[in-house]
């Protein structure tokens, strides 16, 4: 993998656009259910799982998908889910 890709949006502008749409759409849903923490928690789980899926597809297309990368995305998603559980539930 080319290290220049780390902060380079241009080669995967479409991928990051999709990720941005996922996050903006997800957070819009999250805040529209303000005062309904259980629903917010479920939306957070949905966003996190979608993020893992996005990471797998992104790296698959990038041809550098490995189990290490899947684990990395998965643990970050679990971390966020636990944070939401702690704050919301």
């Amino acid at each position: 993998m080319d290290s220049r890709k780390l902060f380079d949006f241009s080669h995967h502008i479409f991928h990051y656009l999709v990720l941005t749409i996922i996050l903006v759409g997800g957070l819009t849903a999250f805040f529209s259910f303000r005062n309904y923490p259980v629903i917010q928690f479920l939306i957070g789980i949905g966003i996190s799982l979608t993020y893992v899926l996005w990471g797998i597809i992104h790296h698959y297309i990038d041809r550098d998908l490995s189990i290490k990368i899947v684990i990395e995305f998965a643990v970050i998603a679990v971390f966020v889910i636990i944070i939401l559980w702690n704050v919301l539930i």
Binding site: M1, K5, Y16, Q40, G55, D64, I76, L84
Partner: peptide, 28 residues
């Protein structure tokens, strides 16, 4: 050169939830 997820993606994801936690109001 290393095999890992892209930092930009993680920054966007964690940043989104940092904002979400920050703005989360108490109560249901």
């Amino acid at each position: 050169i290393r095999i890992s997820g892209h930092n930009i993606a993680h920054i966007l994801f964690l940043g989104a939830f940092l904002g979400a936690v920050w703005l989360t109001a108490a109560g249901s």
